[in-house]
Design a protein around this nucleic acid. Structure first.
Lengths: 97, 97
DNA sequence: TACATAAATCGTCAGATTTCGATATTCGCG
DNA sequence: CGCGAATATCGAAATCTGACGATTTATGTA
């Protein structure tokens, strides 16, 4: 777990919003065809007003920081919060900040 | 308290180190002439290997994020952690991240 | 007033970040 | 194999960031 990497990833409103929306997919992604239990697929985040390539870049940043996990199913990639990393990060920050 | 502003401020190793060193001034700034109870004056942070102007910029970033408070005494400016903001930030992050 | 010290600000440069459209890749389906 | 859909990557432009030395500002002291 790279603390600075995570802080950099969190230091952007769009990425913070993505992580936040993933907390309650049923509220924020009611239009997704696939069951939300699988996760949220990338294209759903384009509703934040960003282009497909920009959304992909932000998701890549979150993934590199291990703040989200992915699962490929066919042509879709489903994103979920990585609660383990998030909890570990919060605990570390509580102690060391 | 601007969460994104704070996250941006924390997303740099030098600023994280400054905040960390301020937790235990007696260990990290034993050479300061003035009593450490006043705070730590800016020039002390140059021991991190950064120039005076760079240190000043980092301290400015921390101050704008309200992560530190300052007190001017004569020609010196003493820096302390702003424990209120830090605690509020951590609490918010616990809830909303 | 003149000088010294501490800190902030300025000007500049290099490198990183953010964004986009265009293109490439990956996958499922006929 | 060829097509469409989802996602990743590329290339370019604009902006932001971090670093420095030089300068300015603020303060205390002689």
């Amino acid at each position: 777990m790279d603390r600075t990497e995570i802080l950099k990833a969190l230091a952007h409103p769009a990425r913070l919003e993505i992580l936040n929306h993933l907390k309650d997919p049923h509220t924020h992604f009611p239009t997704q065809e696939h069951p939300l239990e699988l996760g949220v697929c990338a294209s759903q985040f384009e509703r934040c007003g960003l282009s497909q390539s920009t959304v992909s870049a932000h998701l890549g940043t979150l993934q590199r920081a291990e703040l989200v996990t992915t699962k490929r199913l066919g042509q879709w990639i489903f994103y979920k919060r990585n609660e383990e990393t998030i909890a570990e990060f919060l605990a570390t920050l509580q102690k060391e900040l």
